[in-house]
Amino acid sequence: MRLLLIRHGQTPSNVGHLLDTTAPGPGLTELGEQQAAALPERLADEKIDALYASTLVRTQLTAAPLAQARGLEVVIRDGIREIAAGDLEMRGDAASNDQYQRVAFSWPAGKPELRMPGGENGVEMLARYDAVIEEIAVSGVAAAAVVSHGAAIRTWSAARAHNLDADWAIAHPLPNTAVVVLEGTPATGWTAVTWSDLELPRTEPQPGR
């Protein structure tokens, strides 16, 4: 299966560097709307059989132009929402953002038991994301697009793709509407093909990945 993980378009909270993770969340800025409108043309060469978005408004608004262009229904699932910021919610200072990323990226680095202050741990976050990807896989579609969130995409991809790790995810932030393309299945594992248009080297699956 080919899986396209798409970060949502720009929001006011992105502009303010705020840790804004609760539903329903903000809508898109004017630039974010333009980014969403550009997705159908950007993905014109991609086969997409199913389209998913999280329970946050910004992903659904981002998915809407693609859904209209492809004649697809947007399936809404809570499991692909952003990593809950917990006690750090709506903070925009550098220390809070650093702490959020430090905890999130510790999960694919082998410490999924660590918990976001007042929020979820990696076991919980990866399990909810896995459940949605499993649902997509068992539906039998050949290709699916999932409009999700930057930290969630980076963390899940680093934890599940054979050829990615936490260091890669830390060093490569995803701009709004960036796409991570993976191929595989939950049973056989995943290989990242591209990361925000950057082609990735493919490696053999590693034990436990």
Rank of each mutant, 00 (worst) to 15 (best):
D87L: 13
L61C: 05
R58I: 00
D45M: 12
L88Q: 00
I48W: 15
K47N: 12
A64D: 11
V57Q: 08
G86E: 01
K47Y: 15
S54C: 12
R58M: 03
L56I: 15
Q68W: 05
A44S: 13
I80T: 06
E46Y: 13
Q60I: 06
D45T: 06
A67S: 01
D49M: 11
T55Q: 14
I83F: 05
I76N: 02
A53K: 14
K47E: 14
P65N: 02
A53G: 07
A85L: 02
G71T: 03
A64Q: 09
R77I: 01
E82R: 15
S54G: 07
E73G: 08
D49L: 06
R77T: 02
G71K: 10
R70N: 09
A63F: 07
D87Y: 13
A85F: 05
I48D: 07
A50K: 13
L72P: 13
L56P: 13
E73N: 07
S54D: 06
T55H: 09
D49P: 12
E46R: 11
R58C: 02
L66P: 06
R58H: 05
L56A: 15
G79T: 01
Q68C: 02
K47S: 08
D78I: 05
T55D: 09
Q60D: 09
L51R: 09
V75C: 12
V74P: 06
I76D: 00
V57M: 12
A69S: 08
E46Q: 12
P65S: 04
T62Y: 07
I83W: 00
V75M: 13
V57H: 09
D78V: 03
A53W: 11
Y52P: 06
E73C: 00
D87A: 13
T55P: 08
L66R: 00
R58T: 02
R81E: 00
A53I: 10
L51W: 10
A85Q: 03
E73K: 11
A85W: 01
L51Y: 06
R81D: 02
A50P: 10
A67M: 01
I48E: 02
D87N: 09
V57Y: 15
T59E: 10
D49I: 06
L72M: 08
D45P: 14
A85C: 05
S54W: 04
T55E: 07
D78C: 04
L88R: 07
V75Y: 11
E46N: 14
L51E: 02
T55V: 14
L72Q: 07
P65I: 10
L88A: 03
E82G: 08
L51D: 11
I80K: 08
L51F: 15
L51A: 07
I76F: 03
A69Y: 02
R70K: 12
L56H: 08
E73I: 01
L61H: 12
A64N: 09
A53Y: 07
G79R: 14
K47F: 14
I76Q: 02
D49A: 11
R70T: 11
L66N: 00
R77W: 06
G86A: 15
R77L: 09
V74K: 00
I80D: 04
Q68R: 06
E46H: 13
T59M: 06
E73W: 05
Y52R: 04
A50V: 13
D49V: 07
A63R: 04
E82V: 03
I48K: 15
D45Y: 15
